[in-house]
Design a protein around this nucleic acid. Structure first.
Lengths: 151, 151
DNA sequence: AATCATGTAACATTTAATGTAACGTGAGTT
DNA sequence: AACTCACGTTACATTAAATGTTACATGATT
């Protein structure tokens, strides 16, 4: 299967939407992501169901933010897009008969559970507002670098 | 893509081989794994290249252990089978032009790096000998449960 | 010489995400 | 009312990576 990029894509879009007045159409978003409006609608449907965005039809319609950016974490977005499989590795038999295989699975899955817990925890610690702030700070830094103040 | 089960499969096989006198043919291993001898040879080739097993042709041939089980970790096996992609999620643009996307990638990849480091570390802590011991202990426990000694 | 078992290349299958095309619905515009 | 815009949804095609399969070559043992 291909790499699942729904989380990254949606974060990318949400930050752009947050810096944008008025709704953005799926067409525009698709161009930003280098994809297709149908893919955008399909993926954003999850965000809408979670109440993070709203969509409006017709002239002047499109997608807009419907949440408090400080209240939604990267983990929330991950879950809203389907909370997909995180790992590309794993056993094929969740409940093997073979006792040896059980031991192997327990060892590997134990390590994976810990790693997943850490990832989930880290994603849960960062809000969209925090991401937006990081972007603003980097922009400020870039401007600063071009026209440095005296120190 | 499908779930990558090479690590689990190889661990499973190696533990069986460790408890088995003489070489095991790819045919037998394939039946254990519910797969095909060619898949076994293909995957075990990595272990052979790493020096963890050896293979012999002809009558009485097959695969046998060529390592000290206390010296090889689950991580070593993971790497020997190709050290495949661990995550099923991720950005599609490793080096995006868009500054927003860069911020997003850094956040997500940072969390993933931490999770991967933890997983790698945990896999590195467990040797094949340790896994084999866990199996023996579980067997002992099971026997004990059937015919408990007086305490 | 026959058989066994690995080694390898080439190709088919599978799976989940992604990409596309087609059609429907509702909202605003003219 | 007719038209256009934009979303909603379904159905199907494409893609990527692991896995499955077939075919054939090579070396070892009997």
């Amino acid at each position: 299967m291909r790499n699942d990029s729904r989380l990254s894509r949606m974060l990318h879009v949400l930050l752009h939407m947050a810096r944008h007045d008025g709704p953005m159409t799926s067409e525009v978003v698709a161009r930003m992501l280098g994809t297709n409006p149908v893919v955008v609608r399909r993926t954003m449907a999850g965000l809408r169901k979670a109440g993070y965005v709203r969509s409006e039809k017709g002239h002047g319609g499109g997608w807009s933010i419907a949440m408090d950016l400080t209240k939604v974490s990267l983990l929330d977005v991950h879950r809203a897009v389907g909370g997909p499989r995180i790992f590309a590795i794993g056993s094929e038999h969740p409940n093997p008969d073979c006792a040896v295989e059980k031991i192997v699975n327990e060892a590997v899955e134990g390590a994976m559970r810990e790693a997943e817990a850490l990832l989930i925890s880290r994603l849960g610690e960062v809000s969209l507002a925090e991401l937006a702030k990081r972007f603003d700070m980097r922009c400020a830094g870039a401007i600063e670098a071009r026209a440095p103040k005296q120190t």
